[in-house]
Design a protein around this nucleic acid. Structure first.
Lengths: 344, 344
DNA sequence: TTTTTTTACGCAATCGTTCCCGTAGAAAGT
DNA sequence: ACTTTCTACGGGAACGATTGCGTAAAAAAA
């Protein structure tokens, strides 16, 4: 079963013209007489002719397609970013192919190879929690593949990047916790190698230090798979809650960790914020409906996608190799709700 | 700035062979001597050769790409379906292009034209709330484009379909509301033209009837844009709540409507289930964290994606035109939580 | 009338790959 | 020694569209 589209040849044959003439007529070339143009255009319309983009891609050696790799589209943050990406891409006649790494380096590599072999013109990526070996990305970039990083960036590759001010976001969030009376604040984070983890934990540390609270490293927990595996959040929470000086609040650095934490705290019969405060990064639109309504740090996800795509198209369409790269840093927004409202 | 990949010609030139020989060596043809094969394979590996899929697509007149149109990927149900689609597609060497209609018929048409002009081999679609004119889809199907519908199907086009038993799902949900003591049960739904709306409302009606409750048509409200516009949920809720005999429970037939309802009820200071019960279709994984934990009807979204893709690949790869079509009907699952737990 | 210019088209190469043919040269059969 | 059969490879068309170049015929200029 195959879908056969009309080609320029069909038009040429039907009208007794050459394919060149038809092609030129369709593109409104000055060398074609008005009558012929009219003839061709009308017939093309009649048989519903559309140029074959694959043939065009082959000829022009560009696919007008950009690849996007995120860990998962079911994550609100990433789906919002993707919406931003698509809005700009489609407006510029570009197509978007989305691939999910699911926080696995192997899957990320597979997707990367798949996308590049599919002749994408450029790549927008937020790396997985497992990604430490960036040689493939580096090679790709060196060979001329335009790449833009967002959110989870890698510092070693020189290209455009779009992030938020993770440090300040985490600093303000932690400060808010302290101001609310919490002292023994644990942090649950993605692996430390991740750029966002580093920055967010740095902000957390600084806020504690600025308020005269010593950083207790044993209150810092990492989830290797970014909470993709529910059990790992469970494990670190059990560790934290079995301490003699239990934390009175938890700061989480990722969406999945934030909601995962709340789920497990509730499953364990702990009341939030009664027994323990909770605040974390999350772009989920429904956190205000939670019990308790969650205090969260939000990123301007849609805008990040827009900016990243703007950067990428700039790289793709630049005639000369670009050597001057920008890193756009956007502000985060802190939403204070019940999960950090201490009853005292 | 352009990314130039190695071609078969590069190999041919470097080794003093013809492109035909290289091509055959790479495909392990019997007409090529073992020594030549080894030579070619090693060199190809060395320069990291990958066949250009665009050239292949042009030659084979298939893109190994399937198009997916949903209303939005940020919706849990659809992102889960997409995960199911991708898992099967990738395992079979197919690529997936996702497009969002955002409940707009115009956008759906644009995406449809875009995808077909991008030479997709097949299409998986759940139509928008606005879609009534299906002539384009019909034409496409007639011309040989393999199409599989899921969730929001159209009865007029004969092809494979994947749905859930919406009728029974809604029947059981409504029965549960009645058993819980609710009598004056309103329903908020997507437009009636949508297959799922029809079926779900039919289940709702039958459950009322079977329990001796007369269906009050004025308790049935429709949201034209499926809750994409927050205001429309607001409007219908205001209408319902300003009645003299207010509904004591609400049954919603779509994810966005369910969460939207809860948000507005809370904004209006109404307690759920104290003042009003709430139960609806939703595939959101976080509804149990809500205040109150939401009673929901879930669809086996991932499985639906898998099955739809299986059907589509079957259509694409079938040598002969397929005339015998299946409609797979999967069961829904009812989760009873606090939003329907009447305090009495 | 002859030459030049313009108009309006066709031919053929190109993109990367596959595949149907054709064919040297070696091996095998007579 | 001569014919036949393999073996191992090359030539070239094809997929659909674009585009530089060449060119008849018509129009304009000489």
């Amino acid at each position: 079963m195959k879908f056969e589209a009309a080609t320029i040849k069909d038009i040429a044959k039907a009208l007794g013209l050459s394919t060149s003439t038809v092609s030129r007529a369709l593109r409104d070339s000055y060398e074609i007489s008005p009558e012929t143009k009219k003839l061709v255009l009308e017939y093309a319309e009649k048989i519903n002719y559309h140029p074959n983009p694959i043939a065009l891609s082959l000829k022009e050696r560009r696919s007008r397609t950009i690849g996007v790799i995120v860990c998962e589209i079911a994550n609100s943050f990433f789906s919002q970013v993707i919406n931003g990406i698509e809005s700009i891409a489609y407006n510029n006649g570009y197509n978007v192919i989305i691939a999910q790494s699911r926080e696995s380096f192997d899957r990320e590599m597979l997707n990367l190879q798949y996308l590049t072999s599919r002749s994408i013109d450029g790549l927008i990526i937020s790396v997985s929690t497992e990604t430490t070996d960036i040689s493939y990305l580096k090679d790709l970039n060196k060979k001329g593949m335009p790449i833009v990083f967002f959110d989870r960036i890698v510092s070693d590759i020189d290209t455009h990047k779009v992030i938020v001010d993770n440090y300040t976001g985490a600093y303000n969030a932690t400060s808010h916790l302290i101001k609310s009376g919490y002292r023994n604040i644990a942090a649950i984070s993605n692996p430390e190698m991740l750029s966002i983890s580093k920055e967010r934990l740095a902000g957390y540390r600084k806020a504690l230090a600025d308020n005269g609270i010593e950083v207790d490293e044993s209150l810092l927990k990492y989830c290797k798979h970014g909470g993709m595996i529910n059990d790992e959040v469970n494990t670190v929470l059990r560790e934290l809650l079995s301490r003699k000086n239990k934390p009175d609040a938890i700061f989480t650095t990722a969406d999945k960790l934030t909601t995962g934490c709340l789920r497990i705290l509730k499953e364990n019969g702990l009341s939030v914020p009664g027994d323990i405060g909770l605040l974390g990064f999350s772009n989920n639109d429904l956190t205000e409906l939670f019990d308790p309504a969650l205090s969260v740090i939000k990123q301007p996800a849609f805008e990040m996608g827009e900016i990243a795509t703007g950067y990428l198209l700039q790289l793709i369409e630049s005639k000369h190799p670009v050597t001057d790269f920008e890193t756009k840093v956007l502000p985060t927004e802190l939403f204070i709700r019940n999960s950090t409202r201490r009853k005292d």
